[in-house]
């Protein structure tokens, strides 16, 4: 198969992330140090090459940015100074839909941010419940995963690790304003 490189996608990613992806010369250092390549469809250096070639749909449909743990090892070790974890952020922000195997990840982020928006801080119990109801609860019941999770919740509760009542910060209007500016 021959590929005609499309530079517009590369330039768009470079502009949005502020990172020079074109500097990548495929040394493989990022992928060698990455702890989650086993769960990725393309290791980080391959994904960067795909960005260089302008394979937009494949890149934005890839599992790789979603299962990236944001551990920053790649960014720390890149000999060309590319903040690869930052590029992964940009790709996550651009890909509207997470592929199979990563569906729950944006649901978690949504529940987490909703909690901040509502009270200024993450209220763990509320956030966990919202997240749970965003995911496929029925599948969890069928696989009995729900029993394990309930048990863990109980173990935490009886050790005083679950705060029953949420706290709302003073100055919540600042947080509302920040969320109104989102995307700017």
């Amino acid at each position: 198969m021959s590929i005609a490189p499309q530079t517009s996608f590369l330039y768009h990613i470079e502009e949005k992330s502020g990172e020079k992806v074109s500097l990548c010369y495929q040394c493989n250092k990022c992928s060698s140090g990455c702890p989650v390549t086993f769960a990725m469809d393309f290791p980080p250096h391959v994904l960067l090459r795909m960005v260089q070639l302008g394979l937009k749909e494949k890149v934005l449909g890839s599992l790789t940015p979603w299962v990236c743990a944001s551990c920053e090892t790649c960014t720390t070790r890149c000999p060309n100074g590319i903040d690869i974890a930052r590029v992964m952020d940009t790709l996550r922000q651009m890909a509207r839909v997470a592929p199979a195997g990563a569906e729950d990840i944006p649901k978690f982020h949504e529940a987490f941010l909703n909690s901040i928006k509502a009270r200024g801080r993450v209220y763990e119990v509320g956030m966990l419940l919202e997240y749970m109801f965003k995911t496929d609860v029925w599948a969890k019941i069928k696989s009995r995963e729900i029993i394990k999770e309930t048990k863990l919740g109980w173990e935490m509760f009886r050790r005083g690790k679950m705060r029953l009542f949420p706290h709302t910060i003073r100055g919540l209007e600042d947080i509302k304003k920040i969320f109104e500016h989102k995307g700017k």
């Binding site: 944001s70 941010l113 801080r121």
Partner: peptide, 12 residues
Amino acid sequence: NCCGATSAHSTD
């Protein structure tokens, strides 16, 4: 307030 953690930098 919350720092936003991974959820914020993954989103916006």
